[in-house]
Simulated assay, not measured.
Amino acid sequence: MSIDIPWVRDQLAEFLSLTELYRPADPPGVTMVGFTHRMNRGSDEAIIASAHVVEQILDRVLPQWRTEVPADRNKSVNRWCQHREAAQRADAALVCDAEVRQHLGDDAPQVSAGAMHSWAWEGARALWSSGHFREAVTAAARKVNAETQNKVGRRNLSEVKLFQQIFSVEPPKPGQPRLRLMDDDGSETYRSVHRGAMAFAEGCYAGIRNPNSHEDGQPELPEHEALEQLAAFSVLARWVEKAELATA
């Protein structure tokens, strides 16, 4: 699902309006001299409610905003300074990015982590937001594995062996259910679909998850490369979720 840009921009504008600082009027008959305290225009309750929505927007539009936007700049003046700057950046990105890509000759479709399958993105979200991309992909792999175990009711197998069994074209046996991506019509397509799913899952865990987990001292993954890896687990998660459970 694509971002509803008008709605998102309205939410950002509302937050920026609520957190704007202003100097309260002097009490009647009193003229304040020198420094006077400035206040946010909105109430604490309204700002907190708005921030709850805005943080989710920022996680989608600027996933690394918590680390890239300075957190201590003018915080003594306004506790929402980091959120305000991130909201302003996000608004600019929403307005300008499509136009910039078009003029620079790079208007290809963009992949959004937030639009990926929830098993992949929810597993990765917290680590992704802090820039730990390699660990985020590993966390997504664990989440997809765990949800697959839950669906088929098997905790005694995991990762490659789990997917080899559940996508096998052999009939289900007691205690060994299968996942079916299409009805068994005896065709080569039926066999190739499940053989492909099995091989794809093996590639995800043997080629992505294991190297990310077991090689210490590796440099951090570039974000675009991690996004590609995360997308692989999103594809696998969708196949597992939509598959029919076949039991003996």
Rank of each mutant, 00 (worst) to 15 (best):
M1K: 06
S2T: 11
I5A: 07
R9V: 13
L12K: 01
E14G: 13
E14D: 09
F15L: 10
E20L: 06
L21F: 01
R23T: 05
P24G: 02
V33C: 02
H37D: 04
R41C: 02
A46M: 07
I47P: 00
I48D: 14
A49Q: 10
A51P: 00
H52C: 08
I57T: 08
V61N: 01
P63E: 06
Q64R: 15
R66Y: 00
R66C: 09
D72M: 09
N74H: 14
K75F: 10
A86M: 13
Q88M: 13
A92Q: 13
C96L: 13
E99K: 14
R101I: 03
Q102A: 14
Q102N: 11
D106M: 12
D107Y: 06
D107W: 04
P109C: 08
Q110H: 11
S112V: 04
G114N: 07
A115G: 03
M116I: 11
A120E: 00
E122N: 15
A124K: 00
A126P: 03
L127Q: 13
F133R: 05
E135D: 15
V137R: 00
A140E: 00
V144L: 06
V144G: 01
T148V: 03
K151E: 09
S158G: 15
K161L: 08
K161N: 15
F163S: 02
E170A: 14
P171Y: 02
K173A: 15
P177G: 11
P177M: 06
L179W: 01
L179Y: 08
R180K: 12
R180P: 00
D184S: 07
D184H: 05
D184Q: 08
D184I: 12
D185I: 04
D185T: 11
T189L: 15
T189W: 02
R191P: 03
S192H: 11
H194V: 08
M198H: 06
A199R: 09
F200W: 09
Y205D: 03
P211Q: 12
P211W: 09
N212K: 04
S213V: 12
H214A: 10
D216N: 10
Q218V: 05
L221I: 09
E223F: 07
E225N: 07
L227R: 00
Q229N: 12
A232T: 06
F233M: 02
V235Q: 02
K242A: 07
A246P: 01
A246S: 10
